[in-house]
């Protein structure tokens, strides 16, 4: 799979959340959490799986209804189970 998220982008998103929590936290050394490179790559893979799973399930519903384009109703149908699965 060549298409995937950029680990740097994911790191930036994580950092935004982690730095917020470090400011709010009461611990003595407020050094925010960081992630090693393989963990970031794996997070990218996790998010890619989330996105591809959403598309595949919606595509299956759309195909069952004989539609050629994925519409909002198809996403609505698969959304509850998708969110439970992740």
């Amino acid at each position: 799979m060549s298409d995937n998220f950029d680990p740097d982008l994911i790191q930036a998103i994580f950092k935004l959340i982690w730095s917020k929590n470090a400011l709010a936290g009461t611990s003595k050394k407020n050094r925010p959490t960081s992630a090693n490179s393989s963990a970031l790559k794996m997070s990218c893979e996790l998010l890619r799986l989330f996105v591809t799973e959403a598309v595949q399930r919606a595509a299956a519903i759309a195909e069952a209804e004989g539609a050629s384009k994925i519409q909002a109703t198809h996403l609505e149908r698969i959304l509850p189970q998708l969110l439970l699965d992740f």
Partner: peptide
């Protein structure tokens, strides 16, 4: 999957994934 996908749905999936990540 030989499917087209409408633009708002792509944006929707993207926001879902972003919220999931963050």
């Amino acid at each position: 999957n030989n499917m087209e996908i409408s633009e708002p749905i792509v944006a929707c999936i993207s926001d879902l994934a972003f919220k999931y990540a963050a």
